[in-house]
Simulated scan of single mutants.
Amino acid sequence: MTMDFYMLCNRPLISAEEWQSAIDDLGFNLKIPLTRDVATAYGAMTAMWRGEPVVFEFSAFPYDEIQECYFDIDFGQTWPNAYVMYTGSSFSGLAGAIMAGVAIVNRTGGRFFEPQESLILKPDEAVRYAHRTVDEVLAIMGRTQH
């Protein structure tokens, strides 16, 4: 099953370096490829989490398409920038996508939208959600600490 997550942002993410800094600030042991141009990134991204590769898809995404698809959801405002993450059935890919996505929202200001449960999370709520999800994934995988 594929899952998607949307990051609705007040400003664009400037660079992969800024993104990595945002991930590090949240204490996640996730390393994204610094060679990616986040403005034009599209498709699969292989990051490293806990020394192992994790794969998820990432790209900028038109906010108006999110509004059109989820017309019954109140996003609180029109967002000037949006990104999407897709992940398959891999638990590590799920954790990686959530960590990476929440870091974007936390750094740029905005909302983390999880459409499977219709969750629209402010940055502080999204950070707690990410930490809980990572802890749950690690427990399922029989590991500890993110």
Score class of each variant (00 low, 15 high):
residue 106 N to Y: 08
residue 93 G to D: 10
residue 91 F to T: 14
residue 65 E to G: 03
residue 69 C to P: 02
residue 113 F to T: 11
residue 59 S to G: 12
residue 58 F to T: 10
residue 90 S to L: 10
residue 82 A to V: 12
residue 64 D to W: 02
residue 103 A to Y: 07
residue 66 I to E: 03
residue 85 M to P: 03
residue 85 M to T: 02
residue 91 F to S: 13
residue 108 T to I: 15
residue 103 A to H: 10
residue 70 Y to E: 07
residue 100 A to S: 11
residue 70 Y to A: 07
residue 116 Q to D: 11
residue 86 Y to N: 06
residue 76 G to L: 06
residue 86 Y to C: 03
residue 72 D to C: 07
residue 56 F to I: 06
residue 92 S to M: 04
residue 59 S to E: 14
residue 84 V to G: 07
residue 95 A to D: 05
residue 54 V to I: 08
residue 92 S to V: 06
residue 114 E to F: 00
residue 110 G to I: 13
residue 105 V to P: 09
residue 72 D to F: 01
residue 110 G to T: 13
residue 55 V to I: 10
residue 56 F to Q: 03
residue 67 Q to H: 01
residue 112 F to T: 13
residue 89 S to Q: 14
residue 111 R to Q: 13
residue 73 I to C: 07
residue 109 G to W: 11
residue 118 S to H: 07
residue 74 D to K: 00
residue 100 A to K: 05
residue 55 V to P: 02
residue 76 G to F: 00
residue 89 S to N: 14
residue 107 R to N: 15
residue 96 G to N: 07
residue 90 S to P: 11
residue 75 F to M: 03
residue 74 D to C: 02
residue 71 F to I: 04
residue 108 T to E: 15
residue 75 F to V: 04
residue 115 P to L: 03
residue 105 V to K: 12
residue 87 T to V: 11
residue 56 F to G: 05
residue 115 P to I: 08
residue 55 V to Y: 00
residue 73 I to E: 08
residue 116 Q to F: 04
residue 66 I to Q: 05
residue 78 T to G: 05
residue 93 G to I: 03
residue 92 S to L: 02
residue 69 C to F: 00
residue 54 V to F: 02
residue 67 Q to V: 06
residue 116 Q to S: 11
residue 99 M to K: 03
residue 101 G to R: 08
residue 75 F to A: 03
residue 108 T to C: 15
residue 82 A to W: 01
residue 97 A to Q: 06
residue 104 I to N: 14
residue 66 I to P: 06
residue 109 G to E: 15
residue 83 Y to C: 15
residue 96 G to S: 02
residue 107 R to K: 14
residue 60 A to I: 15
residue 106 N to W: 13
residue 102 V to M: 15
residue 65 E to D: 07
residue 91 F to L: 15
residue 69 C to V: 07
residue 67 Q to L: 07
